[in-house]
């Protein structure tokens, strides 16, 4: 320590605030570790959709139960994070939240075939969807990254459902992902992580369209909705 009192005070104040920050980070890290393991097990549970049609509904139910646990975890997180400092500590839960957005939207898509809205996902996690001066919420960018992850998983599902002999599913996926693709084109993305992730969407779209194409040239498409896909040129 130096002889200058003012300077000493400046540094001791700074050290104090750093220490407080470290304590908060420690608490957040511990909570995140627990919640982290939940999304990992949900991911594992939902893998069944790629090889067992009948397993889908029970898997969704199981996933729903896990989301309840995640909800409790987010409630703890909400308490631990000072309401004004959401973006200061965001890095701790950012990736995890993106995975949850993906898993929740996948579950809802499997159950009802619709896209989960920002509000719905936030509601399942028990947090707010609106960004306010204070409080814990679901960041819009994390939600969008979750949707992009969903598209990658669906492109894999399209391939695997054909292997399973389900020729209807790829059409459903194709329609859904094309709609999402059209939606993402409405966003003005600057050169950030969301943009980079979006740029990879075209590969998922391509993969799905190839599956649909393969089915269509071999006449394997179901006859129930010919007007949608079998377009005469």
């Amino acid at each position: 320590m130096s002889g200058n009192l003012v300077i000493n005070n400046i540094f001791s104040d700074f050290q104090k605030s750093l220490d407080e920050e470290q304590e908060i980070r420690e608490v957040i890290r511990n909570i995140c570790k627990d919640v982290d393991s939940i999304y990992r097990s949900v991911t594992t549970i939902l893998q069944v959709i790629h090889y067992n049609e009948d397993g889908i509904a029970p898997a969704c139910l199981q996933a729903r139960e896990m989301f309840e646990k995640a909800r409790a975890g987010y409630a703890k997180l909400k308490d631990a994070v000072p309401p004004t400092d959401y973006y200061k500590y965001q890095d701790h839960w950012r990736f995890m939240t993106q995975r949850f957005c993906y898993l929740i939207s996948l579950t809802i898509w499997l159950e009802k075939g619709i896209m989960a809205s920002h509000e719905t996902v936030a509601e399942i996690l028990g947090i707010s969807a609106t960004e306010e001066k204070e409080g814990f919420h679901l960041d819009i960018e994390d939600y969008l990254v979750g949707l992009l992850n969903l598209c990658s998983e669906l492109s894999r599902l399209a391939v695997n459902s054909v292997t399973r002999g389900d020729y209807n599913r790829p059409l459903q996926i194709s329609k859904f992902v094309m709609e999402l693709n059209a939606g993402f084109r409405l966003l003005n993305l600057k050169n950030d992580h969301l943009r980079k992730r979006f740029d990879a969407l075209k590969y998922d779209v391509k993969k799905i369209e190839e599956v649909v194409y393969d089915l269509s040239i071999r006449g394997l498409l179901p006859k129930t909705e010919p007007e949608e896909v079998v377009a005469e040129s």
Binding site: I114, M115, S117, H118, S174, K175, M178, E179, L180, N181, A182, G183, F184, L186, L187, V205, E209, E210, V212, Y213, S216, I217, E228, V229, V230, A231, S233
Partner: peptide, 25 residues
Amino acid sequence: QQTLSSVARETAISLPDDSPILAIF
């Protein structure tokens, strides 16, 4: 027969303007 791009185009065109997904976006 269809080409890859025609399938993609058809799907994109068949989207309704007022779809809930587009509203979210």
